[in-house]
Write a protein that binds this DNA or RNA. Structure first.
Lengths: 148, 148
DNA sequence: TTTTCTGCAAACGGTTTGCATCGCT
DNA sequence: AGCGATGCAAACCGTTTGCAGAAAA
């Protein structure tokens, strides 16, 4: 169960099992199930429905932990905004729509051997990668063409 | 000459050839020559040396135009900060240090054919890609080991 | 009981905007 | 002369921080 995995992630980071974090875990589980990505604010709105007194700061603090733990993945858009989604693997490879921000996780075979050799050449230790294809989804194309 | 290319980019966007923009073009040319990346604030500090009255807003407005024109490339870091550098090609492929933010443009042979087929499958029109390897540069590793 | 987390509200920092003025064309 | 660009300052917005009280361990 996803909720358990999230609680484990908190515990892993040495965090207590508190009510706000349980709520956050629930909300994230819903999002993981639907595959939706979300902004911090989306999540906060959802949380307020369960507990109107839950503070923004708490949410920020928890999200930070989960990103560190590799449980959440942060997607940065060219316009400076960013959203999150529940991670599947370690590396991040997606296809996102530059208009509506919807996205799909994709499976690309990247030439990993090249990366190690690039690292060696440049004298860097490679610790992660991010690969994003930007495009426009079918929906947004339709709307652009006036069928909205 | 780079300065000319920048001016052309402004003109392309229908912008007038004004003193602040000439200054910006000069500063960018220096940065292009040295291959350094920079934050908006770096650039602003440099500009103030030439003209202490140049406003931040003007800089933001100009940078925005150049990013749109594809002349500047924006690099987003995991900590939410971002920097710019003068573009070479259309697509962005670099290796950046998660600690000091230095970076190198790298030449990776990405499986382009895969991308088109991914686009087709997902019904997206692909318009760009971003590929970043994150790591730690030699300098930062040394410092971490106490040789600072 | 001790330590950590929480909620609140205030501070923060980067970015954007409104507006009177300036300066290209 | 006309219109867009500029500089300034204030507004903005997402995020972080300080702190007193509340909850876990």
């Amino acid at each position: 169960m996803i909720v358990e995995r999230i609680r484990a992630a908190f515990q892993q980071a040495g965090q207590k099992n508190t009510r706000p974090r349980r709520l956050i875990a629930e909300c994230l589980a819903e999002r993981a199930a639907s595959g939706m990505d979300f902004s911090i604010d989306d999540l906060w709105q959802a949380l307020r429905q369960h507990d109107p007194h839950l503070g923004r700061a708490t949410l920020y603090r928890s999200i930070e932990i989960l990103v560190q733990e590799g449980f959440l993945d942060r997607i940065d858009f060219a316009d400076g905004t960013h959203r999150y989604h529940v991670c599947v693997g370690r590396d991040h490879r997606h296809l996102t729509c530059i208009q509506c921000h919807c996205f799909i996780e994709v499976h690309v075979d990247l030439p990993l051997e090249q990366f190690t050799s690039i690292g060696t050449q440049a004298n860097f230790t490679i610790e992660g990668l991010s690969f994003t294809l930007f495009g426009r989804c079918a929906n947004c194309r339709l709307q652009e063409n006036g069928y909205a």
